[in-house]
C-alpha cells in the first residue's frame, strides 16, 4: 500500500493528466485500486490539487513575481503559524515557506506590475505587527520550475532505427 501510494504520487506529480486506466496499467494494479487510493489521498489532503505548469514568458500576459525574505517575531503558543496564516490568506501570495537561516519566511507573491507588488509590501505585509523586516527580490526569468526545464530544446531521436 505504501508503495502504491508513492508510485502513484511519483507518476501524477510528473503528469497529473494520467487517467486511472493509465496509472493502473503502468503499475500493474486494478483500476479500482488506483481510483480508491487516489480518492483516499484526496480525502487525506495528500493530494491538494492539480496544476498545469505554464511558461508564462511565452504568453502575452504581463505580471511580476517577487520573492520576499521576511523576518518576523514568533508568537507565544503559535510559533510562526499565526503570522504565516495572516500572510498566506492574501490571494496575491502564491507560496509561503518557513525557513531556517537568516530570515524566517519566504513569501512568493505575484502582481500585475511592480507597483502592485510594492503596494502589497508597503501597505499590507511590512506594517504587520510581527513583521520585523522584508527584503524583496524580483524574478527576472524562470529557467526550471517543478523539476521541468521550461525551454528545453526538442531533440529528435537520433538513434539508429534498428540496433542490436
Amino acid at each position: 500500500m505504501a508503495n502504491l501510494r508513492e508510485d502513484l504520487l511519483a507518476l501524477i506529480e510528473r503528469n497529473s493528466r494520467l487517467t486511472p486506466e493509465d496509472l493502473a496499467e503502468r503499475l500493474g494494479v486494478s483500476m479500482e485500486e488506483v481510483a480508491a487510493e487516489l480518492g483516499l489521498m484526496v480525502d487525506e489532503q495528500i493530494i491538494c490539487g492539480y496544476h498545469t505548469l505554464i511558461n508564462w514568458d511565452k504568453t502575452s500576459k504581463e505580471f511580476v513575481t517577487a520573492l520576499i525574505e521576511v523576518k518576523v517575531t514568533p508568537q507565544h503558543g503559535m510559533g510562526f503559524d499565526k503570522i504565516a496564516q495572516r500572510i498566506y490568506l492574501f490571494d496575491e501570495v502564491k507560496a509561503v515557506y518557513l525557513m531556517s537561516g537568516g530570515f524566517d519566511l519566504t513569501v512568493v507573491i505575484e502582481g500585475d506590475n511592480i507597483k502592485e507588488v510594492a503596494y502589497f509590501i508597503s501597505n499590507k505585509l511590512a506594517p504587520m505587527e510581527s513583521v520585523l523586516s522584508t527584503a524583496t527580490h524580483f524574478v527576472l526569468k524562470k529557467y526550471k520550475d517543478h523539476g521541468i526545464v521550461l525551454e528545453l530544446p526538442k531533440k529528435p531521436d537520433e538513434r539508429m532505427i534498428i540496433s542490436p
Partner: peptide, 22 residues
C-alpha cells in the same frame, strides 16, 4: 540479421521504430 533489416527499414519514410537496443 539486424543489419540486413536495418538496411530495409532506413529506406522507408515515417517509420516508428521499436527496433533499438539502447
Amino acid at each position: 540479421g539486424i543489419r540486413k533489416f536495418f538496411d530495409v527499414a532506413k529506406e522507408i519514410e515515417g517509420v516508428i521504430s521499436l527496433g533499438v537496443g539502447e
